[in-house]
Design a protein around this nucleic acid. Structure first.
Lengths: 239, 239
DNA sequence: TCTGTCATATAACATATGTGAGTGCGGGCT
DNA sequence: AGCCCGCACTCACATATGTTATATGACAGA
């Protein structure tokens, strides 16, 4: 199977064979993280970054009283803590939601890339910029959309992101989040997540059975979620 | 007056004199933008990025029905659309909240920096990573804090950010936002912003007269807003 | 001086979402 | 086979926040 990060970057710009080799050889090892374990802990100062090859992961912050907010959901091809290369200490944790296969890239290798491969560096930078764009989109969804719209928006986004790394099966995706976890990502209570999902089902927009979520009516779902995918930067450009 | 971006970067890492010169000479011109005008429009594909030298600006998205969400407030030293260098097309607009002085940096100059100055490149990248960290913090505040706590949190953050570029006067800052604009940043209605401000005043945490906001009790404000500044990355490190 | 505009401030009321408690199902463990 | 235990799901009720409307003061322009 091709490296999903390469897949993802190639969607946005051309990668030379040399650059692909450099990326591959930056990986020092692959490790497996069990579900419900941290891939990176909050407060740590890692000396390597983790590239998700398989599975689902979440960035999260916890408050003293136990409330939790998930600030990003990561799928194959996402560099879950590339920012720790420069930010140094993690201001949040990264949790494996399912068993995860993770490619480990030492910061020394990243520093070398920045020294020797300007174009590849820009693509890695781009990668973190897209994370930022997604954050902004989530902010507007949290601030100005109803719970139902927010949920619809989230589903649309996740679907497209999975599609760009070839992890969709027709109109259905594998969505291994519990309703409580969905609540933590959307800023809702578990009960309300349930209400909202019922509504989307009743409207015939989605079906969700076990881990399989299928989108029954993409256009209406997009409309309910006021979803426009420009922020995902899926166009091919020279960067 | 020293370039506020340099001030900001020097807080996080050492800048060589050469790097400072490179940064300065990357500026092609300085322009002035009136209050309530866009510095950059949504949908544009700028060929240069804008560094805010003076004034307040906001990144925002608008929905068809006129609802607006502000996803970032920018102050002196902030590179308001550095990301457009690689993201190409703007997925949001940037609005001058007050008259703004803006240094213009052509993308060609940025590309040259990435080719010739790896360390400086990393610092620019860092800059966008800190934007991302702030976005994540806003997400958790929107998702899991009460309106009052969120407001307190916002005030704490803005104060520290202004302090690092030398724009505080004791415990008071210049806060030129209307309550409606504050609502658009926090995802609240104008009415509720007013209620929340009353409460913070009644509690003796802040005073807000005209444009001058003064923090009367930093410790309690921090506590109300569950504010911890780690995410602002104010430590000096080699990056 | 008058007038229009814009921002802050209040009030009464509407509603989306949260809270706390409880049910039932299915899968994994002993 | 029996038993947890986590998870989806429901209900009744509480409340934070939104909505709409109005009043007031500061200020700019005629």
């Amino acid at each position: 199977m091709p490296n999903p990060l390469v897949l993802k970057l190639e969607q946005r710009d051309r990668l030379s064979d040399d650059e692909k080799r450099v990326l591959e050889s930056a990986i020092s090892r692959v490790r497996v993280v069990e579900a419900d374990e941290d891939i990176v802990h909050e407060g740590e100062t890692p000396s390597e970054s983790s590239l998700l090859l398989d599975g689902f992961a979440a960035r999260y912050k916890i408050f003293s009283n136990g409330r939790r907010q998930i600030t990003a959901i990561h799928v194959a091809g996402d560099f879950v803590d590339l920012h720790s290369f420069l930010l140094k200490t993690m201001d949040h944790g990264v949790l494996a939601l399912t068993p995860c296969r993770v490619a480990v890239v030492p910061h020394a290798a990243l520093e070398k890339i920045t020294a020797d491969h300007p174009h590849l560096t820009r693509l890695l930078w781009l990668n973190t910029l897209i994370d930022g764009a997604i954050h902004r989109e989530w902010l507007t969804a949290m601030g100005r959309l109803s719970a139902t719209a927010h949920m619809a928006h989230f589903i649309c986004e996740l679907f497209l992101r999975l599609e760009t790394v070839g992890r969709t099966d027709g109109a259905t995706i594998h969505l291994p989040l519990t309703q409580a976890e969905l609540g933590d990502t959307l800023g809702l209570s578990t009960v309300h997540v349930n209400r909202v999902l019922q509504e989307l089902r009743k409207e015939g927009l989605i079906r969700w059975q076990g881990d399989a979520l299928t989108i029954l009516d993409w256009e209406r779902l997009e409309k309910v979620g006021e979803f426009t995918p420009t922020y995902l930067n899926l166009q091919h450009e020279h960067r």
